[in-house]
Write a protein that binds this DNA or RNA. Sequence first.
DNA 1: CAAGAACGTTGACCTATATCATGAGGCGGC
DNA 2: GCCGCCTCATGATATAGGTCAACGTTCTTG
Lengths: 255, 255
Amino acid sequence: MSIVHAQSRFTSKLTSQCQNCSLSALCLPIALADEDINRLDQIIERKRPLKKGEILFHQGQTFDSVFAVRTGTLKTFNITSSGEEQITGFYCPSELVGLSGIDNDTYPITAKALETTTVCEIPFSHLENLTAQIPSLRHQLFRIMSRKISEDQQMMVLLGKKNADEKVASFLLNLSSRFKKRGYSAISFRLAMSRGEVGNYLGLAVETVSRVITRFQKNKLIEVDGKEITITDLAEMQKLVGIADDCARLADLNK
Amino acid sequence: MSIVHAQSRFTSKLTSQCQNCSLSALCLPIALADEDINRLDQIIERKRPLKKGEILFHQGQTFDSVFAVRTGTLKTFNITSSGEEQITGFYCPSELVGLSGIDNDTYPITAKALETTTVCEIPFSHLENLTAQIPSLRHQLFRIMSRKISEDQQMMVLLGKKNADEKVASFLLNLSSRFKKRGYSAISFRLAMSRGEVGNYLGLAVETVSRVITRFQKNKLIEVDGKEITITDLAEMQKLVGIADDCARLADLNK
DNA sequence: CAAGAACGTTGACCTATATCATGAGGCGGC
DNA sequence: GCCGCCTCATGATATAGGTCAACGTTCTTG
């Protein structure tokens, strides 16, 4: 009987259910009981894939959902007074986009696909209701938002205090750890974004990004083949960035 | 009878109750029913004032509470790899500090008083429990966190794309609107932070901040007397910053 | 109230990175 | 499968803002 149960349960889930999703351990369902995952599952809509360059939501558009990236990569950006775009983030699988829209019921940024990308749409009003009933989901959502705040603040430190080398090294190591977290190689990966987008994000000119990458290659820190990056000297890269990225370790340094 | 009720209710509240707090319309209690404010009130602890330079919490310390500023001003900062501090925010009355600590149960930043400052301590586990029962409180907390994410992203744009003039102008206008929101003058106010702290926050050297401020004075944009600032040409200042700070207005510009 | 420390301003100079310019791949579209 | 465009790399040059130094002013503290 338990077999029948398991079976029916299995067949009733198509590949796009949270239970089967290889990302569930990183994404919203983390720490949820099976039954609760089901409830979450029911409010989630899987959308047709976005092609490269397609837009998920626009700056100024009415907010109604947050989105979990399933495959591919997104960027989010603002349009500045002078009309140029300022990229505020890149989003990889399992990451949640759109949380900044809750405040004004309006997305303050645009989200655009860097490559073919699939997302799960999570209508926020439903999610919010569910959080009333599922404490661990509520806590998880608070944590995700809190982490986003911390990360953005780290980014502020990067933009305000780091030089070009440190910025690029931080960026590469950050991607590395995100890939690692979801089971890919931490030392070898493919950039979904162009040099221009990297520069825009880091507050650098394209040319500077290009030169730094070339220099890193010459100094045998990384190997590069177009968008393929291999970190060959992780230790040296980490030294470049400084230990401060590990906040916890500093706890006793600032009394 | 209703008079007695009102009376007893009044006398039962000391000055440090949410109901009597002049900030309640801006702070967490916004949109809460009286009875719900009471429940919130009960979990909040008022702390003795912090003197200038005292620390509210340390980077690395275990997270247990968020804090609402009642009077005074706080700054939050990180220590970078090279040991210098990078300021990540200034907090004025009614604003909530410490939300970035939820994620790791650890504050990733230090919060320090810039002047004599009083705060309300809100133990987060209690707050989280209350949000299960009070939907409007839950929504308010999501909104506050969401707004923080938007604001930090605006800050990233500022750090990544703006020049010194634009940074300083943005900073002054930002303070101006925060003062205005809580009923103070939008054109005349006192900076709680030093030029050095402004520079640190904006990714500029002290000298640059000083020079920009001097230039603004010469150009009759502002008047300055030490830490007292008066904005004399608001329109020109806004022009300097650009219209893009108003995200909503751009909704139809980026199709 | 005096002395030292911290803060703020201003000038001279320097440098990291932006900008401009050019050319070489590489990719998408017809 | 070719053309045109976009991306990337690299050199030459310009510049915004950093750094260093000197000095006045304003807090702080004994």
